[in-house]
Design a protein around this nucleic acid. Structure first.
Lengths: 72, 72
DNA sequence: TCAATGGCTATCATTTATGATAGCGGTGTT
DNA sequence: AACACCGCTATCATAAATGATAGCCATTGA
């Protein structure tokens, strides 16, 4: 699978987990300690995010890092 | 787990997979299309690597992305 | 002895992720 | 009508990842 496709799918997975927890973009970005537009960028797969950023999100969503990138 | 710890563990996992395939740093970095010192940086956990970089490595090592970050 | 290989460091320029701000359209509520 | 919330875009400055180069030390083999 190609990079952009992977990023989009990771974004979709994050969004699904967020919605499953009834969190708004504002809610989740607040808990992750960054701004809403940055989270949107991630969920849309428009940024080649780092492990550090992914880890913040995984901690708040209470999932393993591996689960977030398990998209192949 | 904390970010730097995760990065170090991911680095160790990459190194283990590389050595299991009898590849030198030069070999793997060549196949990934970047230079040896950059791979060392990654294996040592000194860089907060992106999904894109991790994906390159996963493809060459023939493992899933999730396997590389499964360190918790 | 000398060259080649492997692991490593330090350092540089360029690209880009991150963090933040302002603003828009839509929906729902008072 | 006015306000608040939601998802979203565009854009900016700053920090940092990436990609690359030069060089060090140790080991091995010609």
């Amino acid at each position: 699978m190609e990079k952009n496709e992977v990023l989009v799918k990771i974004g979709i997975k994050i969004r699904e987990l967020r919605e499953a927890r009834n969190l708004s973009l504002q809610d989740l970005s607040d808990k992750c300690d960054f701004e809403k537009p940055n989270l949107i960028r991630i969920e849309k797969g428009r940024t080649n995010l780092t492990i550090g950023t992914l880890l913040k999100i995984a901690l708040v969503l209470n999932v393993r890092l591996a689960e977030l990138v398990d998209v192949e």
